[in-house]
Design a protein around this nucleic acid. Structure first.
Lengths: 139, 139
DNA sequence: CTCAGTGCAAACGATTTGCAGGGCC
DNA sequence: GGCCCTGCAAATCGTTTGCACTGAG
């Protein structure tokens, strides 16, 4: 990790990528981010986006989310926090409940792993999809 | 779901698939399951495995895990419980700590979603990978 | 006879990678 | 000048799907 950061350059592509990711709290996928970044860097390649998201998350500047779902999502907020995913549209939002500090210790006692951390993912139906559901039921 | 079950047949492929999945607690991926099942049904197709894992999880006979990682994993144990994933080798084990019953209510209060449930995934290094690490360090 | 289920192979979507420039240190 | 980084395109990997065929009710 230290090796990595030492040799890594802060290129314009990386700068813009991080700026765009930190602008939002929507935990975009790689291709969503690609679309966002392309408005400022029209010639950037999708491969570059993938490469840099990987590198930036390896050196801790951003976070790759371990959420279920088909596509990986990224988070500019590296403070530990929990998420909720909409079962209908797949969007991911932050959940603002206090972090459960003692969970890791509990887990350590109950298995033979070295515990590194935990993540809680709630699932549900977001307000937008609920609204659409109501409309569907109404008609 | 009821519609589904009504018309679904318990074919030999499905039977064997569920039996093999319930034999283990390793939360195999589709292709791992394919290898397991093929020892008893050598002519089964990978597509059939995918199709049936999907159907069986839709009708609640098995569970599709919402874990991070590249491949989807399946669980023959449908009781709600938490998991831990090894950061090094990717294996997933059960974590035997009590379910946090009040989490969903907490989440409901703090966002506008309809909460359906939650899942906790720990991450760590499994005993096997720790051992390999020690050997590496030793030599 | 119908219709769900199958094996097979092709298609697909997300991600990764090889390569030939291009530019910073 | 070396080495990291990029754009581009092709390759890869997991998963899904179209199709023709089989088999149980």
């Amino acid at each position: 990790v230290e090796e990595l950061e030492k040799r890594m350059r802060l290129t314009n592509q990386r700068q813009v990528l991080m700026e765009e990711l930190r602008k939002v709290t929507t935990h975009p996928t790689a291709s969503e981010l690609y679309d966002m970044v392309r408005q400022r860097l029209p010639r950037i390649a999708l491969g570059t986006v993938y490469r840099n998201l990987e590198l930036l998350s390896e050196c801790g500047s951003i976070k790759k989310l371990e959420t279920g779902g088909e596509q990986k999502r990224f988070d500019g907020n590296t403070d530990p926090h929990y998420h909720i995913r909409c079962n209908t549209c797949g969007r991911v939002d932050d959940i603002h409940i206090p972090r459960l500090e003692d969970l890791d210790a509990q887990a350590a006692d109950s298995c033979s792993y070295t515990i590194l951390g935990h993540h809680i993912e709630f699932s549900g139906i977001c307000a937008d999809c609920n609204a659409v559901g109501s409309i569907r039921r109404f008609f």
